[in-house]
């Protein structure tokens, strides 16, 4: 079985700064994988590289959306919208919702990539287009229900409480029908109760939707409880990988985190 995402020897430079150096990792079907590391380790850069916002200097990114399919597809250097179309959706560390649109509309934007109506069809509003529109609304509402924020459907996105905004980002990403969901610090700024709820949501997404998840997170308790596998980055290099238990006891990882006054049991 192929991994759904296989990154090999990915490097990224900003001027002379090596932001990422020969990073390799792979994620298999239905895994929840976490990417951790101190601030400035290159986690978000890594996300930006594999979602097409940056073009990596070297390396390959393979995806195979169907595990039984033998051939892999290299998506390195493609545009972000094409990568999303191929089935990788992401959220942002600093929430990037469409602030002045309603919650439902935000999710409907996610459906854009799976629907087809063009300008002329939209103007004429043929039966096909009408049905598609109706389906977009239905599907989007169902996704809102799944993420538990359907009560806000007609509110403006900017008026949502913080936790709900994070969830809306996830809902919007889910609407693009991904096989791999990339979450950039989904629990940042949440209170403990909200964090637990988020953990349950992520697990549910994996179980019900068969979606693999790669997430960046600083909340170690959250990561250790949730993830099957952890990759650790420091100064643009992968310094460790393995199960949560292995990582917790890895001396290299502890050393990398020492400067930050870190406690894995926090």
């Amino acid at each position: 079985m192929n991994p759904v995402l296989e990154v090999s020897k990915l490097s990224m430079n900003f001027g002379g700064l090596k932001a990422l150096e020969n990073i390799s990792l792979d994620i298999f079907q239905n895994e929840i994988v976490s990417l951790i590391g101190p601030n400035g380790a290159g986690k978000t850069t890594f996300f930006n590289c594999i979602t097409g916002i940056y073009t990596p200097v070297s390396g390959d990114i393979f995806i195979s959306s169907l595990p039984q399919k033998t051939e892999k597809e290299n998506i390195c250097g493609l545009k972000p919208n094409i990568i999303t179309k191929k089935g990788m959706a992401r959220t942002f560390q600093n929430i990037r919702l469409f602030q002045n649109m309603t919650v439902l509309e935000n999710v409907m934007i996610g459906r854009h990539v799976r629907t087809h109506a063009g300008i002329i069809a939209s103007v004429l509003k043929l039966k096909k287009t009408r049905n598609e529109e109706k389906k977009i609304v239905d599907d989007s509402y169902n996704i809102l229900k799944k993420t538990g924020i359907e009560n806000f459907a007609n509110e403006k996105a900017s008026t949502l409480p913080y936790g709900a905004q994070r969830k809306l980002e996830i809902a919007r990403a889910l609407a693009t029908e991904p096989f791999l969901l990339l979450l950039d610090e989904p629990a940042a700024g949440m209170n403990p109760a909200e964090t637990i709820e988020l953990g349950l949501l992520i697990k549910e997404i994996r179980e019900k939707e068969n979606i693999s998840i790669l997430l960046i997170e600083h909340d170690m308790k959250f990561v250790m409880n949730l993830c099957d596998k952890i990759f650790v980055l420091d100064y643009g290099k992968k310094i460790a990988s393995g199960t949560p238990d292995a990582i917790q006891n890895n001396p290299v990882v502890i050393k990398a985190y020492l400067g930050e006054d870190f406690d894995f049991d926090a």
Partner: peptide, 22 residues
């Protein structure tokens, strides 16, 4: 319509818009 929403999204946030596959 689908296009109209994409326009509004584009106005709101270009990066997020692209990340949503537009």
């Amino acid at each position: 319509s689908r296009i109209g929403r994409a326009w509004i999204a584009l106005k709101e946030d270009e990066v997020a818009c692209q990340a949503m596959g537009i």
